[in-house]
Nucleic acid binder design. Structure first.
Lengths: 341, 341
DNA sequence: ATCCTCTATGCAAACGATTGCACAATCGAT
DNA sequence: ATCGATTGTGCAATCGTTTGCATAGAGGAT
């Protein structure tokens, strides 16, 4: 019925003032310009008529949409929901809204989505899709629109600021934990090296092995082609097929670890009796799997909040660059790691 | 640098035609009105100048935003991501975008979000938050905006159409399965009855017990206060504390089932040796928990696609009502159910 | 009473697109 | 050669707000 056809104009007529006066009443920072009594009557009229502001017209005129574009690889990956909640809550506090889309890791799809969001005049971007070398990012930077990289970062961030976990430190925690249990021969299933997470954790693994004084063997490192269960399973099978002995494997994230579980089952091996496994991210429900996964907890929600804060800040102070943020991870020990046999 | 300040006007000037001509070239269904050669030159000019359409202005004028508002209770509940993917893909195919927000089940929050989306002039809504009696829905219906209920439905849908699973049929599958294994005393942990899913599954449980000829005891039914692990754990403890014997429990969804696992562990009982448990939804990773959960698979993605299709259809044919859609569930038998001891 | 300073409101031009209507040019038919 | 139909562009109003500028009136100082 009452499909919102009522505009600021109608309200003005009802009260007997000019539309501009109504506009001033409705905007918090111009309300002081108008007499309290009139303001009161305007407010009442908006209620009575069922006035709803038209954000489109507002944005068109003011050139600000109060919307932030958020690109993630895939919402069905359980790492992202908590991050998104952080982003949303951080933005909502400032009256901003997130516009979310999945890229599935496809650059062309990402571009299409970017196009659409630019058309909708988003005020900034939060990207969880960064590759180490990423044309999409270059594009955003060229548009000179506030840009924050989250979870993953890129080779040279330029004007983009990043909010990430200290990945190398996280991996060091797992290596130290395993070494402490007495493991000598530790393997690594790395995530894709074109993603900063895969790359940094791989680098971190090497550094950590050196630091605890364990010999690392090239044959005990395999790079998975994606951060997925399937890729983890294949990588683990590759590792086993190489015939080189190892008693533990540090994986690049929880999905890879779960895939490794599958491979172990397929070969009739047991975790942690035969082989200990660690993950990364502490995504929801990995405490419920069998065995409960020892992993690195990252600050999902906090990461989202910080990223939201960072874009908003850049929007407020367009000239500035802002500092990159690096959050500390923590080790969560569960049932997937034990002393070697 | 080149922050999109170039408008349809600039393009027109560059080519030496009127803005309206440019507009006609850019809109697929008016392009035939303009000479091929001019169209060509316009296209080139948009490229050369780096023109990006302004969706805001477009929407303001046409009164269509090509955006659908999507409300879900909580994105961190793993049931929703696959549904969302279905929605997004379904909408994207028609050039529409989803605008997603979490309500956390709070009605006032839902209203606030609704307000914001109405202001942004969404063309329709998909609600996964429906309560059996739901003022938010009434509100939407009053605004006469296309509305589709997904996963959950409401008491009297009115103009809203719904896309749901046949919940009662799903529960019947679990009851038949357990009865087939030889269980006689089957308990039920129901979800909240103010949600159609909780209500229908509860109703389905009673009907199914009658249908397979098993006696049902009021003491063996407990209603959880939410669809959460914590609520499931508490409900299971209540059930155990009542002292009434049972060998299996049908739960209202997977989260409740996982909570029931926790309660069993806390009491030193084992699933499925002591008690069999079934879930509902087959959400991601329940095949990985210990024991792997026997549950009812629903068509998450399909549900999203159908809902998207339904709103779009209602947008195209405003007068019509469209048919409610009910998708068939399937039983997935895993390790959490076995013959009674 | 005159003038000056404020203050509260009105006016009208944007913001960037779309679209009904008018009109000029083209063409074929008579 | 004239007319009517057809086709391709231009014109200008419109979508719903915001905002710099103009202005009318109130109030105070002289």
């Amino acid at each position: 019925m009452a499909r919102a056809k009522v505009t600021i104009h109608d309200v003005a007529n009802a009260v007997g003032v000019h539309p501009s006066t109504v506009s001033r009443v409705l905007n918090a920072n111009t309300r002081h310009m108008v007499t309290a009594e009139i303001a009161q009557r305007v407010i009442e009229a908006t209620r009575a008529l069922g006035y709803h502001p038209n954000a489109l017209a507002h944005s068109l005129r003011t050139r600000r949409s109060n919307t932030i574009g958020v690109l993630i690889p895939d919402i069905t990956n359980p790492v992202f929901p908590p991050i998104l909640r952080g982003i949303e809550d951080g933005l909502a506090a400032a009256g901003y809204t997130a516009m979310i889309a999945n890229t599935d890791g496809a650059a062309d799809r990402a571009n299409l989505i970017l196009e659409g969001m630019l058309a909708r005049r988003v005020d900034g971007f939060i990207l969880a899709t960064a590759q180490r070398k990423d044309p999409t990012i270059d594009r955003c930077v060229a548009e000179d629109i506030p840009l924050v990289l989250i979870n993953r970062t890129t080779k040279s961030t330029g004007r983009a600021i990043s909010v990430v976990t200290d990945d190398a430190a996280g991996i060091a925690l797992t290596v130290a934990h395993l070494a402490g249990l007495g493991h000598k021969r530790i393997a690594h299933i790395a995530g894709p090296l074109h993603l900063s997470t895969g790359y940094e954790r791989h680098r971190g693994f090497i550094a950590a092995m050196d630091s605890v004084g364990l010999e690392r063997q090239p044959a005990l490192i395999v790079v998975a082609e994606a951060f997925s269960e399937h890729a983890g399973e294949r990588a683990m099978l590759t590792l086993l097929d190489r015939g080189k002995k190892f008693t533990a494997v540090v994986t690049g994230n929880d999905l890879l670890a779960l895939g490794a579980y599958d491979a172990l089952n397929a070969r009739g091996l047991s975790c942690p009796k035969d082989i200990s496994i660690t993950g990364f991210n502490d995504m929801p429900f990995v405490d419920k799997v069998s065995p409960p996964l020892t992993t690195v907890r990252i600050q999902h929600y906090e990461m989202g909040m910080r990223a939201a804060g960072a874009v908003l800040e850049r929007i407020k102070e367009p000239g500035t660059r802002g500092a990159d943020i690096r959050l500390e991870p923590a080790l969560v020990v569960r049932g997937s790691t034990a002393r070697p046999a």
